[in-house]
């Protein structure tokens, strides 16, 4: 492996790590409006937060098992889809996370 590739891989790993940390916040924020998995992915991608299905669906399940999301299967366009939205607890957690996010953002701005 050339040094250039190594450096590129290192950057890619750190970039993914950075984005992975902010995914739950992005997902919770996007689910203030009800979505099913695919449209949620498209919404996030439109905002520059690309996320693959192998990451999104396990994350949705984890958030749901923690009581932050509620879901239901519904038919739309003749296909069964699972729709997700924030639970009341999810709304409260999202508020707290946004405060935390702003604080981190300000701290980083200060450092940078």
């Amino acid at each position: 492996m050339s040094p250039g590739n190594e450096s590129g891989d290192r950057f890619e790993n750190l970039r993914q790590e950075l984005r992975r940390g902010s995914l739950p916040l992005a997902v919770l924020a996007a689910l203030r409006t009800e979505h099913y998995g695919y449209t949620l992915r498209k919404t996030l991608a439109n905002h520059g937060m690309e996320i693959d299905e192998g990451t999104l669906y396990p994350l949705l399940r984890r958030l749901e098992s923690h009581g932050l999301l509620v879901s239901e299967w519904r038919e739309e366009e003749k296909r069964n889809k699972r729709f997700y939205r924030l639970s009341p607890e999810g709304k409260s957690i999202l508020k707290q996370l946004l405060v935390e996010w702003k604080s981190i953002h300000e701290s980083l701005e200060d450092i940078l």
């Binding site: 998995g37 695919y38 699972r82």
Partner: peptide, 13 residues
């Protein structure tokens, strides 16, 4: 449950 959701995503794609 997981397969149904994954199948729906793939078909949408």
């Amino acid at each position: 449950d997981i397969i149904a959701e994954l199948a729906e995503d793939l078909r949408s794609q």
